Amino acid sequence: MNYEIRPAEERDVRAITDIYNEAVIRGGSSADLEPVSLDARRAWVDSHQPRATYPVVVIDVTDPATGERETAGFGSLSKFHQRAGYDGITELSYYIARRFHRQGLGTEMVRWLLDAAVERGFRHATTIIYADNAGSVALMRAFGFTRFGLLPAAVATAGDDTLHDMSYWVKTL
Score class of each variant (00 low, 15 high):
V45W: 08
V45M: 12
V45N: 07
D46E: 15
D46M: 12
S47F: 03
S47W: 03
H48S: 13
Q49N: 09
Q49H: 10
Q49A: 13
P50V: 11
P50R: 09
R51A: 15
T53P: 03
T53E: 12
T53K: 15
Y54C: 13
Y54L: 10
P55Y: 02
P55A: 07
P55D: 10
P55T: 08
V57C: 04
V57M: 01
V58P: 00
I59Q: 02
I59N: 02
D60A: 15
D60S: 14
V61M: 04
V61I: 12
T62K: 03
P64N: 11
A65F: 01
A65D: 11
A65K: 07
A65G: 04
T66Y: 02
T66N: 03
T66V: 06
G67M: 05
G67I: 06
E68H: 04
R69W: 05
E70Q: 11
E70R: 07
T71R: 03
A72S: 08
A72L: 05
G73Y: 00
F74D: 06
G75F: 01
G75T: 06
G75I: 04
G75W: 00
S76V: 10
L77W: 01
L77T: 04
S78M: 13
K79H: 15
K79R: 15
K79N: 14
H81S: 12
Q82G: 13
R83L: 11
